Simulated scan of single mutants.
Amino acid sequence: MSRSAENSGTIEVRKAHRFDTARLEEWMRNEVADFEGPLSIVQFKGGQSNPTYRLDTPHRSYVMRRKPPGKLLPGAHAVDREYRVISALHAQNFPVARPLGLCTDSDVIGTEFYVMDMVEGRIFWEASLPEVPAGARWSYFDAMNATIASLHAFDPFAIGLGEYGKPGNYFERQIGRWSKQYLNDAEAGRVAAMDRLVEWLPANIPPGEDEARIIHGDYRCDNMIFHPTEPRIIAVLDWELSTLGHPLADFAYHLMMYRMPTGITAGLAGLDLAAQGIPSERDYVAAYCARTGRAGIPHLDFYIAFNMFRLAAIIHGIKGRLARGTASSAHAEKTVAGLEGLADLAWAQAVKAGA
């Protein structure tokens, strides 16, 4: 089954993620402007972290994201942070769903949650965009490139997000955070390549001035909604990993698609990009640099090694949640199966960077 078939659409709410619908409807009646029930609720198939639901009424539809129930790692699944960043970005006309309400009272449905508009459009689960004609794919890639460049152009202090994260020393702090999470999740076990990266990455952070911008943290094709018929992004989704950080780290995470095989996640490695109508990695980097006023991206291999390590640490966390019975997706086992291959690929990028 393709990633698109596995993740697209909705299902009946999973048993572990059910809650008191009447309590949610009462909350929405009090907190969401112009809400009129009754509610009909299904769960989106995709996603590994925060359970996401489609809420339908006779007149309109909403989306709810919540913390998963059960034992959680400290600081994870911060839906209040997601709500804060999309609220600030929506005010700047950046493409996000309109936020409608945040509930930090876990007594309502068992965990914190927020509600936003339902945005109708196209989600692509494969980076090669097989649903798009080859002659149109360049425009879709250019839309992704332009949107992340526009995100990195915001001054966090100017839009009320100056305290959204700790400015400076981004790589040091992130490597420390994900290393700690990896090492402390005993239920998920250890991976040899991850152990090597835990040692190598902090000792090889590139020198130079650090930057602090709003970064998405998981910017990839399946975390954005495109216009139903146009090569235009109308909503960027899943801001759980957003913070203040180095924009080149964020862009390099997005750029990983060029070096990732399709068997691990949405990747382009091994494809004839020109025949597919997809810009090369070099051209894609050049477009981002032109939009952001950069001459180039030195140390790109390090940035990609770091991001592959970070993604592997996230998947390692999914493995731990699977062991604890709190994974949010029915496809968690398949995702976890690619962990060692991804860690090996991350080490290969470190070798390219001089390891």
Score class of each variant (00 low, 15 high):
residue 109 I to H: 12
residue 18 R to L: 01
residue 159 I to D: 10
residue 116 M to R: 10
residue 178 W to R: 14
residue 135 G to V: 13
residue 53 Y to V: 01
residue 101 G to V: 12
residue 37 G to Y: 10
residue 111 T to P: 04
residue 195 D to W: 01
residue 262 T to Y: 03
residue 66 R to H: 00
residue 260 M to E: 10
residue 103 C to G: 08
residue 308 M to H: 11
residue 276 Q to F: 07
residue 348 A to S: 14
residue 166 K to T: 15
residue 298 P to M: 12
residue 133 P to T: 06
residue 10 T to W: 03
residue 176 G to H: 03
residue 205 I to D: 04
residue 120 E to I: 02
residue 203 A to V: 01
residue 25 E to T: 09
residue 120 E to W: 00
residue 209 E to A: 15
residue 278 I to N: 04
residue 78 A to C: 06
residue 159 I to F: 07
residue 262 T to W: 02
residue 188 A to F: 00
residue 268 L to W: 09
residue 290 A to H: 12
residue 197 L to S: 09
residue 261 P to T: 13
residue 172 E to G: 14
residue 232 R to S: 11
residue 189 G to W: 07
residue 260 M to C: 13
residue 13 V to Y: 12
residue 235 A to S: 15
residue 23 R to V: 00
residue 318 I to W: 05
residue 130 P to R: 02
residue 299 H to Q: 10
residue 274 A to K: 14
residue 339 L to K: 03
residue 325 G to T: 10
residue 83 Y to S: 11
residue 152 H to C: 07
residue 201 L to Q: 06
residue 161 L to Y: 07
residue 41 I to V: 15
residue 262 T to P: 04
residue 133 P to R: 02
residue 56 D to V: 04
residue 273 L to N: 03
residue 317 G to C: 06
residue 295 A to E: 14
residue 236 V to N: 02
residue 185 D to A: 14
residue 262 T to N: 14
residue 259 R to S: 13
residue 193 A to E: 11
residue 224 M to Q: 09
residue 188 A to G: 00
residue 355 A to L: 11
residue 32 V to W: 09
residue 153 A to Q: 12
residue 176 G to A: 07
residue 186 A to C: 04
residue 157 F to N: 13
residue 261 P to L: 08
residue 69 P to L: 10
residue 66 R to D: 01
residue 355 A to I: 02
residue 139 S to E: 14
residue 79 V to L: 02
residue 75 G to T: 06
residue 172 E to N: 08
residue 291 R to W: 00
residue 72 L to A: 14
residue 212 A to N: 13
residue 31 E to N: 15
residue 270 G to R: 07
residue 348 A to V: 01
residue 229 T to H: 07
residue 219 Y to T: 08
residue 240 E to A: 05
residue 300 L to S: 06
residue 244 L to G: 00
residue 237 L to T: 04
residue 272 D to V: 13
residue 117 D to E: 15
residue 4 S to Q: 12
residue 312 A to K: 01
residue 30 N to D: 14
residue 286 A to Q: 12
residue 37 G to M: 12
residue 163 E to Q: 13
residue 127 A to Q: 12
residue 314 I to D: 09
residue 352 K to T: 13
residue 64 M to Q: 05
residue 266 A to R: 01
residue 61 S to W: 03
residue 258 Y to T: 10
residue 327 A to R: 00
residue 99 P to F: 13
residue 264 I to S: 06
residue 143 A to D: 11
residue 270 G to W: 06
residue 238 D to Y: 11
residue 84 R to T: 14
residue 32 V to M: 11
residue 288 Y to S: 09
residue 260 M to Y: 04
residue 201 L to A: 05
residue 266 A to T: 05
residue 32 V to H: 12
residue 79 V to G: 09
residue 297 I to Y: 04
residue 147 T to M: 02
residue 176 G to P: 03
residue 321 R to E: 03
residue 301 D to F: 00
residue 42 V to N: 11
residue 227 H to I: 04
residue 14 R to L: 15
residue 299 H to L: 01
residue 238 D to N: 10
residue 85 V to C: 07
residue 50 N to M: 05
residue 19 F to H: 09
residue 242 S to G: 12
residue 225 I to H: 08
residue 315 I to R: 01
residue 252 A to L: 07
residue 170 Y to N: 12
residue 307 N to F: 05
residue 270 G to T: 13
residue 2 S to A: 01
residue 180 K to W: 03
residue 115 V to A: 07
residue 4 S to I: 01
residue 332 A to D: 08
residue 332 A to C: 04
residue 76 A to C: 10
